[in-house]
Design a protein around this nucleic acid. Structure first.
Lengths: 329, 329
DNA sequence: GTGAAAGCGCTAACAT
DNA sequence: ATGTTAGCGCTTTCAC
């Protein structure tokens, strides 16, 4: 491997000039810059990142720690983050905490060790409570999850509003006994739950909600119990895509038809929600935009570390499909 | 930040002893080791990775470049790789080439720049043809895709066999006019196509296959044309999950029922293939095992670079569901 | 605008 | 078993 001194020799200049030319710093004549570029090409020189980092104490790397890499919501965010990072000549380290606080802590330490410029994180619930930027040696931006009082930059859905509107829609369809199944692992489930409660209260209806651990299998178990008790509720509301999957599995397993015997609705516009007859009504999140906003917030924070904490709240889109259709009682 | 010299001072030993103790090298007394560990804890010392890499010219990082991070097949592989890497105190850089040779080249360069110990890769087709390990400064293991004559370690499904068995199953169900839709972007589609051709030939049936660009949308367009021409074929076979999704979307859009009007089958046991009534017949891949085998192959190659090239071929599992059921003609 | 030289924090070779 | 020390390849003063 060619080193910077080889390039300097070939170009007939000092290593300092090569370094300046390659970093795009001022104080290099056009002639020198051209000679350096030619030498770099001729030798197929690539700067040694380890040396560069050791000396400069900076990196051009960002971290992205998501809580479930298998969730299309987060993969789409990853795509957005990479696209923007790519344009800024930044690199992204993608990590999957798998909803496990220990893994999350491991990756946060890794980010520190790697000396990243900043991190985008969808935190587990334990971490989120009492999260402070000052605990981390790098700028931090939250995605998907944050508390009302989190003192950290964040990009999230308006979960309360989304929960409210989805519930409102079901009520407008004539549903009365609406059961809300919400994820217990993140903050989003709780916030959507609040929206549900508000909408039910506004309509003078009695709420009936159940927290569920974040696995489709678990949701399926709960729903199978629910669906085997008669009379059935009018509707089932799932606070995320995983739970929605469990709900559909359970309905299939027990032969309960929707919207005939029970209406269904949920969150996250996954591909299969359109494929299943007669389509599942969901709140769709502007996923790519959330990701893009997150990295833009992060880059802005890196550029000016002292700016005020910002939170971007995005509105979900209600996609009405067959699963919540009014049925003649 | 504390440096190694601070630890040495605190522990009352030399920096060399600290380095040895931390790297688990021999030549350190138990007493010294304990003193070092105490000093490390007291100072909250973390080795500077950039310095360590610069000096040792090694890293404990692996690269994983997948061609579609949104595909559950690859996310599951990522999970397996991370699990095993974690146990070996290795770190994984996960990258998404998005089926784009340019992005792929970018990430391979990045791996070189980062000085990774090895890379697991699902290559794009252009890269795969003419791939040599000697082109890359790190050990390489292919997953999912490789050619018969690739001189690289690899872990793949037995695609020919899988294509053969899936076709054979449909033939056994009485299907005659079976159309095979296969992905044109990877090598797997072509190999599954070969299996299909062999099975059709063995049964004395005329093959009818069509290559498709790797996007569900594209598959949908092709299938919509196909399904609007009468008479319909007996069955549609999709060579991967994405195409299968497009097939189902098209069938729904045109109101073509399955298995009533046409039988369906495909590859990849995605969650929704079970949810859709009456279930889609697929070849399931041992995804997690493929990922685990890949990193184990890679670690073995890193340990002994000169060993013979190995290829691990895994057998798919045929999951028969309602979509391929024989219907009374 | 350019060059000489110091030194980032660590590992490994060598000495004891 | 332990210490001393020379760099790894680069960036960044500082002097010219």
């Amino acid at each position: 491997m060619a080193r910077i001194s080889d390039v300097a020799k070939k170009a007939g200049v000092s290593v300092a000039s090569v370094s300046r030319a390659l970093s795009g710093l001022p104080g290099v004549s056009e002639a020198t810059r051209i000679r350096v570029e030619a030498a770099v090409k001729a030798l197929d020189y690539r700067p040694d990142l380890a040396a560069r980092r050791l000396r400069s104490r900076r990196t051009n790397k960002l971290g992205l720690i998501v809580s479930d890499i298998c969730n299309p919501f987060f993969t789409e965010i990853g795509r957005a983050v990479e696209d923007v990072a790519y344009q800024h000549r930044m690199r992204v380290m993608l990590c999957n905490s798998d909803e496990d606080p220990e893994k999350e802590a491991f990756y946060l330490e890794m980010m520190r060790d790697e000396n990243v410029s900043g991190v985008i994180l969808s935190p587990t619930l334990p971490l989120l409570s009492g999260l402070k930027t000052s605990d981390h040696p790098f700028p931090l931006v939250l995605v998907d999850r944050c508390e009302r009082d989190s003192e950290v930059d964040a990009v999230v859905l308006d979960n309360f509003d989304a929960g409210f509107r989805l519930t409102e829609h079901l009520i407008a369809q004539g549903m009365r006994r609406i059961v809300f199944l919400y994820g217990s692992a993140g903050s989003t489930g709780a916030q959507r739950h609040q929206g549900y409660l508000a909408a039910m209260a506004a309509a003078g209806l009695a709420p009936d909600a159940e927290p569920i651990a974040p696995r489709a299998e678990r949701a399926r178990e709960v729903v199978e119990v629910l669906l085997s008790r008669k009379p059935l509720p009018d509707a089932l509301l799932a606070s995320n895509g995983l739970i929605l999957q469990g709900v559909v599995e359970a309905a299939r397993a027990l032969g309960v038809s929707f919207p005939g015997e029970i209406a269904l609705a949920g969150f996250d516009d996954m591909p299969w929600t359109r494929l299943i007859e007669p389509g599942i009504t969901v709140i769709a999140q502007p996923t790519y935009e959330i990701g893009r906003a997150a990295i833009e917030l992060l880059l802005a924070r890196i550029a000016s570390p002292e700016q005020a904490v910002r939170r971007l709240v995005m509105r979900g889109e209600l996609k009405i499909r067959g699963s919540s259709r009014k049925t003649s009682a």
